[in-house]
């Protein structure tokens, strides 16, 4: 176990109960997007060295998806984003 992540449903839990779900991104409109922009959306990441907003899923728990801000330099969550399940 290393760091704890707070599930809006279950409270602080061992990180290995969760699945990382990617950086929160805006999906381009599929009708107007170009092939290159779509590839960028699919493959590129910001890899912020600092606070970034990302999706997490409580896989070995209640099955809630939630977005949190986490500091990638120390793995500490910053603010809880959404509270409802």
């Amino acid at each position: 176990m290393s760091f704890l992540l707070t599930c809006p449903n279950c409270g602080p839990r061992n990180i290995y109960e969760f699945r990382f779900g990617g950086e929160v991104k805006t999906r381009p409109d599929e009708n107007t997007v170009s092939a290159e922009d779509w590839a960028d959306y699919v493959y590129l990441s910001k890899n912020v060295c600092g606070v970034q907003k990302e999706w997490w899923y409580h896989a070995k728990g209640c099955g809630t998806w939630f977005a949190v801000e986490r500091d990638t330099r120390d793995n500490l969550p910053v603010v809880k984003e959404e509270n409802e399940g």
Partner: peptide, 14 residues
């Protein structure tokens, strides 16, 4: 690898 991005080189008991 631990399947989440991180710039820490923390290790885990797990």
């Amino acid at each position: 690898m631990d399947p989440w991005p991180s710039y820490t080189t923390h290790v885990t008991a797990h």
